[in-house]
Design a protein around this nucleic acid. Structure first.
Length: 491
RNA sequence: CGGGGCGUAGCGUAGCCCGGUCAUCGCGCCUGGUUUGGGACCAGGAGGUCGCAAGUUCGAAUCUUGCCGCCCCGACCA
């Protein structure tokens, strides 16, 4: 059945690629490092986008759109920021092509060189703060709560479908506040929203915390994050939220008058999640037969497949199927009735399993006789026959149950893969043999963090919120430490 | 940019070592029919600059050189 999909055990990376490609989420494109998101994959992203968008709006944010291009000079206004992004920027230098006078097709017109080069945005802080300068004068203009849905480009050395592509889709929120506390509260609020979304919609438990200085966003005072665990024991950053202090306000001279008519720089946050979430979803829930999508964001929650013999009562089956689909749809369930005659039922079963559709209803002649339907769960592979009456309630209940089961399963896996390590040797053994998150003491220095990364490939994913104090000694340097931090090898 | 693998029909592949009816097979696709409770079967059919370019040769998918592209692992990163 899974003949097309490489098993996780055999080759985890290939398994991931197989799920993305063969599950119909995306394709490789003619452009290196860039992918085509196919309709099914985009439907999934749209589900995520629409859900998050509503959450942003419910907390007072508005959408806007800023330019794709950023004048080169803007990027260097904030020192840490340019330092962080300069290495991966695509640059527009010319604005015109012309026919090659030597007959070699079309060439860049050397006459059409831009006076100032434009950067294709790797993120939009600079262009946005340059704009905010003109939008903000008084405390009455604050807080300014803006989000944009956009594409960004980061020229990565090595790309992976959804997880890291040269161009990707995301949302970036950029807010301005009158006080530091308010900005921090905003950054924390957005992390709460991400947590809510990833855990309750994507069924993926996350660990929340703050990044160390070296893992911080370029230009931030603090970076908060949610970290998820994939099935191969590697961590994946699922979302980040930054408290930017007054760094960008100072760089772009954004001041406001407070109630006392005192002039001060505004306080900022930014926060984002990307199409990388699709990759997280694939990697954390999928199995060797394909994708497994959580009902709350599955583009198709229920597929109905008719099974007939010859033309016997085919019309009746068709009618029943359509009625059932309509009934489910009326209750807000995303349903597809697949009566396409080109493929046989067995083929469809396998196909929708590969695509991760949470529930499948098979409707055959036996069911017509008995007034039943057969329902199969994607997550547990259970097949059960149910009486036709009350089927909508049954489906609704099952969808909730699948959502819950998927979250619990991921949670259990995650919890089983948080391990304490008290020595360097133990730390390395755990990384190689078990994987997952490792809680260990660290002396708090960037040098040690770097050395650990160098020698073990593991990074500090975060210092978890509400982290218990615990006296101990750094697993690498042996120096005293007041708390454990969360390590993992990561995507 | 380093290490490994690989480019032959839409996809997956055989052939390459030892040049010469070798362009093979499966899936998919098209037509017709039989089928349909776990990836159906039969019959017929379409589809190829063998990644690109030079070179060696009477003759190159096959040998030589150069280039291009892709995948995996690593360095950079969400």
């Amino acid at each position: 059945m899974s003949k097309e999909i490489t098993s996780r055990k055999e080759d985890y990376s290939q398994w991931y690629n197989d799920l993305v490609i063969k599950g119909g989420l995306a394709d490789y494109s003619a452009v290196r490092g860039c992918m085509v998101i196919k309709p099914f994959g985009f439907a999934l992203w749209e589900k995520m986008r629409d859900t998050l968008d509503q959450m942003f709006k419910d907390t007072g944010h508005e959408n806007a759109y800023f330019p794709l291009f950023i004048p080169k000079s803007f990027l260097s206004r904030e020192a840490a920021h340019v330092e962080g992004f300069a290495k991966e920027c695509a640059v527009v230098t010319h604005y015109r092509l012309k026919n090659d006078p030597d007959g070699g097709g079309i060439i860049v017109d050397p006459e059409a060189k831009l006076e100032e080069e434009l950067i294709v945005r790797p993120t939009s802080e600079t262009i946005i703060w340059n704009t905010y300068k003109t939008w903000i004068q008084s405390y009455r203009d604050l807080p300014l709560l803006i989000n944009q849905w956009a594409n960004v480009v980061r020229w990565e050395m090595r790309t992976r479908l959804f997880l890291r592509t040269t161009e990707f889709l995301w949302q970036e929120g950029h807010t301005a506040h009158a006080t530091s506390d308010e900005a921090i509260a905003e950054a924390r609020l957005m992390l709460d929203i991400y947590t809510d979304f990833v855990e309750n919609y994507m069924a993926l438990p996350v660990i929340r915390g703050v990044k160390t200085a070296s893992e911080r966003f370029a230009g931030a005072i603090d970076t908060y994050c949610i970290e998820a665990l994939m099935q191969d024991g590697k961590a994946l950053q699922a979302g980040t939220s930054h408290f930017l202090g007054q760094n960008f306000a100072k760089a772009f001279d954004v001041k406001f008058s407070d109630r006392q008519n005192k002039l001060d720089y505004v306080w900022a946050t930014s926060w984002g999640v990307s199409t990388r979430l699709v990759g997280a979803l694939v990697m954390s829930h999928g199995d060797d037969d394909g994708l497994i999508l959580p009902p709350r964001i599955a583009p198709i929650q229920v597929v109905i497949i008719p099974i007939y013999k010859g033309d016997e009562r085919k019309d009746l089956l068709d009618k029943k199927g359509k009625e059932l689909a309509a009934e489910l749809k009326k209750s807000g369930i995303r349903v597809k009735f697949d009566n396409n005659d080109n493929n046989r039922p067995g083929w469809k079963f396998a196909e929708y399993e590969k695509k991760g559709v949470p529930l499948r209803i098979a409707l055959g002649l036996r069911d017509l006789d008995n007034n039943t339907v057969e329902i199969a769960r994607r997550d547990t592979k259970e097949k059960t026959s149910f009486p036709e009456g009350g089927i909508v309630l049954r489906i609704e209940k099952l969808l909730l149950e699948i959502q819950d089961t998927m979250f619990r399963k991921s949670m259990q896996y995650r919890d089983e893969h948080i391990t304490k390590a008290d020595s360097w040797k133990e730390f390395l053994n755990l990384l190689d043999e078990k994987g997952g998150f490792i809680l260990a003491h660290w002396d708090g220095t960037a040098e040690t963090e770097e050395a650990i990364k160098e020698k073990s490939k593991a990074t500090i994913r975060c210092i978890p919120f509400n982290n218990p104090s615990e006296e101990g000694f750094c697993i690498y340097s042996g120096k005293p430490s007041a708390e454990r931090v969360l390590f993992a090898r990561a995507y």
